[in-house]
Design a protein around this nucleic acid. Sequence first.
DNA 1: CCCAACGTTGCAACCGTTTTCTCTAGCTAT
DNA 2: ATAGCTAGAGAAAACGGTTGCAACGTTGGG
Lengths: 324, 324
Amino acid sequence: MATVSRVVNGNPNVKPITRKKVMNAIERLGYRPNAVARGLASKKTTTVGVIIPDISSLFFSELARGIEDIATMYKYNIILCNSDHRLEKELQLINTLLEKQVDGLLFMGAEVKEEHLQALATASIPTVLAATRDPESKLPSVTIDHFQAAYDATMALVKRGHRRIAMITAPMNYPLEGFVRFEGYKQALADSNIPFAEELVVNGTYRYDSGLDGMKQFLALENPPTAVFAASDEMAIGAIHAVQDAGKSVPGDVEVIGHDNIRLAEMVRPRLTTVVQPMYDIGAVAMRLLTKYMNKEQVEDHIVLLQHRIENRESTSFLDEEDE
Amino acid sequence: MATVSRVVNGNPNVKPITRKKVMNAIERLGYRPNAVARGLASKKTTTVGVIIPDISSLFFSELARGIEDIATMYKYNIILCNSDHRLEKELQLINTLLEKQVDGLLFMGAEVKEEHLQALATASIPTVLAATRDPESKLPSVTIDHFQAAYDATMALVKRGHRRIAMITAPMNYPLEGFVRFEGYKQALADSNIPFAEELVVNGTYRYDSGLDGMKQFLALENPPTAVFAASDEMAIGAIHAVQDAGKSVPGDVEVIGHDNIRLAEMVRPRLTTVVQPMYDIGAVAMRLLTKYMNKEQVEDHIVLLQHRIENRESTSFLDEEDE
DNA sequence: CCCAACGTTGCAACCGTTTTCTCTAGCTAT
DNA sequence: ATAGCTAGAGAAAACGGTTGCAACGTTGGG
């Protein structure tokens, strides 16, 4: 048994001849090692827990794919759990995953609270945040610079000469995606000497409908915006349709810029100009980072910021490179 | 220890007083049961393996959500693996999941071959196919009637008076989604005395681009189709855009019907008429079925066919109810 | 030629539960 | 009062591996 274990695990202290004999026996008997027993004995399960708000969302499923690809590369499996952004479910999932002795944890969710940190502290397994951060940056995380991204998006509209720039925000109780992006928007306005106008902001839910409704609300204004920055692509597309439904054109009458660059952005007309957030890469890098922690490798940067950029498509007007 | 086990598992052979004492101790010591050890001893892991072609696809991520919701409901966790439709990877994943001692397996993939059945036979754990079937229907499965769905979609176009009806198929090496749907299309033509025309069929890849390209090809015909049935919504949307890019209108010049009803179908203009395949339900029902097998409950129907229907939106012309 | 060192193998303890079986104490029935 | 039960709790044997350590046979150097 011990020798079989060594063979299976590639331990070098086995004579090649013995190794071959064992291999043959394994083949002949159809022996399949029991990962659970192995996990108990070795205290390693080669499994990581992934807590994700909603796998059916275009954003998170892309992220999950990045996670899974890298996990596979490093021979880990993934236990995937949907949290629906509900705190209580998140905490319960952390607990369940710890019970299952996962080697590491990947957490996605809008907000990381003290409760999360406490729950995680009850076991000392490596945890990485993907597409989110905790307030005090205690946990390693992989994100983009949301403030800068929103700032850049707004600025892109300013550069096109707009003064009436609206924003459809993400839910404002999401610190990073809601609040910080909104701050970026405001800062860009301030830096451009454009007065902030309350009526040019609506709070969205991330969903298509809220973009549609938000834009309708803007269009009903006596002095409607000429450009809109939406905090998600779905909302941006909703906004475009609201404009079109009103008999106006994008980008002719209103220019629209979205956020994330989900695949959808290329599959609508006009195609959507958007802030590209590298979802796949965030997942992949987060998982890679996690493997380092699980291997107890030294890590230089706990907080990694990935690059964002603006992909110009037809929902905004053409702008000469030099103007940017 | 034995008593603790009984308390944790809700075994009734424990005096209430003892139970309370144990509970207190658990609380006080922050004891967390080790699911791996439990799995070894009980031979149950409360984990099921899910093999899915690509979680980042709109179709499968919706399905996965259905699976996960029901799994959670029955206290199972999910190990999720992407196969990319690659046979070798599928087989390897089956093996890995069996090593991990999953209690059941949920398989998605275009084709189920003899190799799959053999790999599964090496361990006798319940397996359910979701959105696919094996040729001899040996394994339990949850799908819709693909032949009928394609037939209905084509007929819907026939009823609108079309005689030049094109089809953009799914990959033809996918038996169910490719071949069977194509058969449904042909049968509908035959039943309507419409001659089958080779040039009105292109093989798609499921992707947006292949719909776009396929439609371009049709439009270049000297006698182009007046209606198109695409085997996926993405391709249908691609087709619509090809029509629009050619300066024609949908549904004015060409009517388009898609397949699946992914969320995207409602987020384009014109909104897409499509065959709704209840992805979430397929996942949910498949998982529910699997729980029955895992509990060794008696199951009446191994093969379950879910209902499909056609959702009429603006990519097809209005048709009086009575005509249908 | 002998002994030390090394490479290889097997033994046995251990991982943290579940589960069966045994044992004890307290009851009931006679 | 005593035999017979029963409920509850503990002891111990799995579960199927990993791993430290002892034992063993070789080999090479002195």
